[in-house]
C-alpha cells in the first residue's frame, strides 16, 4: 500500500518548513493592538443608534419600540407587508405574535418534538419571524445561532421576508465583542441587511436569493 494522501501532504509540509521530525513550534504571539471593544456596554443608546444607522444603510426596514410594544410593532410591520401566513421557530415568545392578525406555522424542533416544516411550506409562507443571538452595531450585523428563538437555518432562508426582533441587551459594539458570546459549534448565520449582489458593474443591488426584505424590530430600554 502506498503512503496515504494525508501522510504525504503532512510530510510535504514538514519538508517545506524544513522541520522534518522536529517538534511543533510554540504559537507565535500575535500583536492584537487593534480595538477589541468600542468601550460601551451592550444596549448603550449610542450603540443602538449606530446599529440602526448601519441597518438603514443596508436598506433594511427598522422599527424601534419599548419592551411592552413588541407585539403591536410586529403586528403593524406584518400588516404593512400584507403578510397573512408567518413561519416561526418553536422557541418564539408568544407575546411577539400576540397582536398580529396572521396564521402562524411553527417549525418543529427537537427535543420538544414537532414536525420540521418542508422546504415547500417555507417557500409558500409570507415571511418568518425570529429573534437573534447577538447584534453588532458597528457593522450592522445580526447573528442567528439556531437556538429555539432563531430556529434552524432553512427557516430564515427560504421565506422572502424576514422579521427579526433584536433586544437592546443583545447589541454589542464590534465584531470582537460578538464572538465570545457565540458558540462556535452551532450553525451560525451572520446577517447584514437583505441579500444583495455587487456582481453587475460592482454596483450593489439588494435582493437575490436570500430574503429580499429584512425588517428589524429593535426593543429599547
Amino acid at each position: 500500500m502506498t503512503t496515504s494522501a494525508r501522510d504525504e501532504v503532512l510530510d510535504r509540509i514538514r519538508t517545506a518548513l524544513g522541520r522534518s521530525g522536529a517538534a511543533a513550534p510554540e504559537p507565535s504571539p500575535v500583536p492584537r493592538e487593534y480595538r477589541t471593544s468600542l468601550g460601551r456596554a451592550p444596549g448603550d443608546p449610542v450603540l443602538l443608534d449606530l446599529l440602526v444607522d448601519r441597518l438603514v444603510d443596508y436598506k433594511a426596514e427598522v422599527h424601534r419600540c419599548p419592551p411592552g410594544a413588541v407585539g403591536a410593532t410586529v403586528a403593524a410591520a406584518l400588516a404593512a407587508h400584507g403578510a397573512r401566513r408567518i413561519a416561526a421557530p418553536a422557541g418564539l415568545p408568544a407575546a411577539w405574535l400576540a397582536g398580529a392578525d396572521v396564521e402562524t406555522v411553527t417549525d418543529g424542533a427537537a427535543p420538544d418534538g414537532g414536525e420540521a416544516l418542508s422546504v415547500a411550506t417555507l417557500d409558500a409562507v409570507d415571511g418568518v419571524l425570529t429573534g437573534c443571538a447577538v447584534a453588532v452595531a458597528q457593522t450592522g450585523t445580526i447573528v442567528l445561532d439556531s437556538s429555539p428563538v432563531c430556529g434552524r437555518r432553512a427557516l430564515t432562508l427560504v421565506p422572502d421576508y424576514h422579521l427579526i426582533v433584536v433586544e437592546a441587551a443583545q447589541v454589542v459594539g464590534s465584531v470582537p465583542e460578538a464572538l465570545p458570546r457565540l458558540d462556535a459549534v452551532r450553525p451560525l448565520t451572520w446577517v447584514s441587511g437583505p441579500s444583495a449582489t455587487s456582481d453587475i458593474e460592482l454596483d450593489r443591488v439588494e435582493g437575490v436569493h436570500g430574503p429580499r426584505t429584512l425588517v428589524v424590530v429593535l426593543v429599547e430600554g
Binding site: 457593522t139 437555518r153 462556535a184 450553525p187 451560525l188 448565520t189 446577517v191 447584514s192 441579500s195
Partner: peptide
C-alpha cells in the same frame, strides 16, 4: 462594513 451573509458550521 460587512457582507450580507456569513455562514458558519461545524
Amino acid at each position: 462594513r460587512m457582507n450580507p451573509y456569513t455562514s458558519m458550521w461545524t
